[in-house]
Design a protein around this nucleic acid. Structure first.
Lengths: 245, 245
DNA sequence: TTATTCTACTTGTATTTACAAGTTAAATTT
DNA sequence: AAATTTAACTTGTAAATACAAGTAGAATAA
């Protein structure tokens, strides 16, 4: 038993329940299991992956927490419409739903290393402050109309070649997840409705003084003490921010 | 073993891990464990409550998910600043933090049974539509200044004496939780920044045309197919909405 | 004194076993 | 034919056990 264990540990360090989680997650996202359908039963998953039920249940529980499935006693695990991203708000049109595919990204300011601002709405850890931050500005458009203007600050800690990456039409968070194994684990945010100043009005193509939704967010990651800070201005004239929790 | 089990089942139907969860939750909220301090170790909790470690871990896992603790291997379970409510946004002053104790509630419209509006931003289940809704309006104030104006619609399903209850200075959700065992399990919301119209401007004591944060929310509960719908207008002149996720 | 090792904690992972309880559909009875 | 019971699923709860791995402080060695 111990031998098998150590062999497993050699070929892959990640625990079994996480492996199953990743497999099922991928299968849900890629449409192997349709929304509303049932996942294989816990016992089936045990047999297929040659693990025990508590381990399977650990994986399923994580999927429930992340909103990929819901379980019902006596019935099974029901596949849900996957959440856009944990806490990353997606937009929904007021008239018709708008898929992410119509969301374009324009880089206003390529990633560059900067010191942190003097006044900052969140407390920084010592390491973060010492390392400086990678600064970037983006404008995101729906149907060629600007909707988001966001300023992102990421601590410059162990992110090789980050500044040279392209983020056009690609999620910043997807890049962090796939290229650097950084996952968002939650966070906090402050929301306000403000009047658009000249810069924001110009960027979001709305009259100065019109209401704009502004967000200050601090996102936690799986890296200890590594946070992502964003300031977001949202043009809510034609769209609203949609979020699940 | 089975005997012990059935005896347990007689005196209380709720599972052990949930009992432990409730106890620890209460102790965290009432300050028995200070923020930043460590919870008793899993083995200690086993001994104290006479249960096994998997059961304790199940309770702790729920506390982690609900943001009451964070765990660290080799160290222990660290008590965190408890979240205000799951998904129920609390406010934080821009200058100084404001505790909930300074939040006053004024009932503008006592709970009354009404039909659902013709146009509604969310889809209703059949049962919800048939039952009609309990309608109420509240104004919430900080330092005697209006901050929230909220409209709540709750399906009129199995809520005896609800209309006659008082919600002055008491959370609607706290009442639902303690009196009716209805717990919020998450939900979805749509956010916009809008211009204050005359009614909203008057209620929130701001000039007409000033930016107001508006929210449409649908909250899921532990009752299947039972949702709570709220429309919230927030005066973000002096405060911002603070939320964790 | 300083650095290292050891030890006694902590949580993390995983197996095995058992029964409870909800769901569904087939089989049986009325 | 319709209602009921049964059986075969499903997930939920819980125990007992074992070892891995991270943490922190005490004991030890340099």
């Amino acid at each position: 038993m111990t031998q098998i264990h150590s062999i497993m540990a050699e070929e892959n360090k990640i625990p079994q329940h996480k492996k199953i989680y990743e497999i099922l997650r991928k299968h849900i996202l890629t449409g192997v299991y349709e929304e509303g359908s049932l996942l294989p039963s816990e016992n089936e998953l045990c047999a297929v992956h040659n693990i025990t039920r508590p381990t399977v249940r650990q994986a399923l529980e994580a999927l429930v927490n992340d909103g990929f499935i819901s379980k019902k006693q006596g019935k099974g695990s029901i596949v849900r419409k996957p959440p856009q991203d944990i806490g990353i708000l997606s937009i929904s049109g007021t008239a018709s739903a708008i898929g992410n595919q119509y969301l374009q990204t324009q880089i206003l300011q390529k990633p560059q290393i900067k010191p942190w601002p003097e006044r900052f709405p969140f407390d920084l850890t010592e390491i973060e402050r010492e390392s400086g931050c990678i600064y970037m500005e983006r404008l995101r458009l729906v149907d060629a109309q600007p909707v988001f203007y966001d300023i992102n600050r990421i601590p410059n800690i162990n992110l090789p070649r980050f500044s040279s990456r392209s983020f056009e039409n690609k999620s910043l968070f997807e890049t962090l997840r796939t290229q650097y194994q950084i996952e968002i684990r939650g966070g906090e945010q402050k929301l306000k409705a403000i009047k658009a100043d000249q810069l924001i009005g110009q960027l979001l193509n709305i009259p100065v003084g019109d209401p704009v939704l502004s967000m200050e967010r601090k996102l936690n990651t799986n890296r200890d003490g590594f946070h992502i800070y964003s300031t977001i201005f949202f043009n809510s004239a034609k769209h609203s921010i949609f979020g699940t929790f």
